[in-house]
Simulated assay, not measured.
Amino acid sequence: MTQWRLLRGDVLVGELSEYGCDQPYFLARFTPGPGWESVRALFEAWAALRGPDPDGARFVALAKPLQDLELTLAPVDGRQPSLQLFKDCIVRINGSEARLRY
């Protein structure tokens, strides 16, 4: 399974290690890095999104600040290209668990 580095520029936000699949998501363990605290509240708020959101306004209000960070996922082995969050993939982090869709 693929291992990823979640980056904000050159700062390591955390690492994701895929371990399974729950279509359409890949399941991963998340290990925080030095840049995690600066983005943690945004990911926690997004992970807490539940219930109906008919017009998508709640989703946008929570996802837009994350998108503005221009985070990328870089594969540890370098065999795949880096992915930009909300352009090439979506990552939801909840504690030590992550769900990745690309």
Results as ranks from 00 to 15, higher is better:
89 C>F: 00
37 E>S: 11
74 A>D: 10
77 D>H: 01
50 R>Y: 02
74 A>E: 15
22 D>L: 14
36 W>N: 03
68 D>G: 13
73 L>W: 05
64 K>G: 00
43 F>G: 05
23 Q>M: 11
94 N>D: 15
59 F>N: 12
23 Q>R: 13
67 Q>V: 06
36 W>D: 04
49 L>F: 00
61 A>W: 04
35 G>E: 07
70 E>W: 01
64 K>L: 14
67 Q>D: 15
37 E>R: 11
43 F>L: 04
34 P>W: 05
74 A>K: 14
45 A>H: 11
45 A>Q: 13
16 L>C: 07
62 L>K: 04
83 L>H: 11
82 S>K: 13
28 A>Y: 04
39 V>N: 02
94 N>L: 10
78 G>H: 07
55 D>C: 06
18 E>P: 00
69 L>G: 11
67 Q>H: 14
44 E>K: 01
33 G>M: 03
43 F>H: 15
80 Q>C: 10
94 N>Q: 15
51 G>F: 05
85 L>S: 05
57 A>V: 05
43 F>Y: 15
92 R>I: 14
76 V>E: 06
63 A>D: 10
25 Y>D: 14
63 A>G: 03
31 T>Y: 00
17 S>I: 07
16 L>D: 09
48 A>D: 09
32 P>I: 03
44 E>S: 08
33 G>E: 09
20 G>M: 08
94 N>M: 09
23 Q>L: 12
76 V>Q: 03
65 P>D: 08
19 Y>H: 15
30 F>E: 08
81 P>I: 12
27 L>A: 05
60 V>D: 11
72 T>S: 11
70 E>A: 12
56 G>I: 02
28 A>I: 06
88 D>Y: 04
74 A>H: 12
90 I>V: 13
55 D>T: 10
32 P>D: 12
46 W>A: 15
79 R>M: 12
47 A>C: 03
77 D>Y: 02
66 L>A: 00
61 A>Y: 02
40 R>H: 02
33 G>Y: 03
94 N>P: 00
22 D>K: 02
37 E>K: 08
39 V>S: 03
90 I>Q: 12
95 G>H: 06
80 Q>F: 10
79 R>Y: 09
58 R>H: 12
53 D>I: 08
72 T>W: 03
35 G>Q: 05
95 G>S: 08
47 A>I: 02
54 P>D: 14
24 P>K: 03
77 D>S: 05
57 A>E: 12
30 F>V: 01
84 Q>M: 09
95 G>C: 04
51 G>L: 00
41 A>H: 09
27 L>R: 10
76 V>I: 13
84 Q>N: 02
17 S>V: 14
59 F>Q: 12
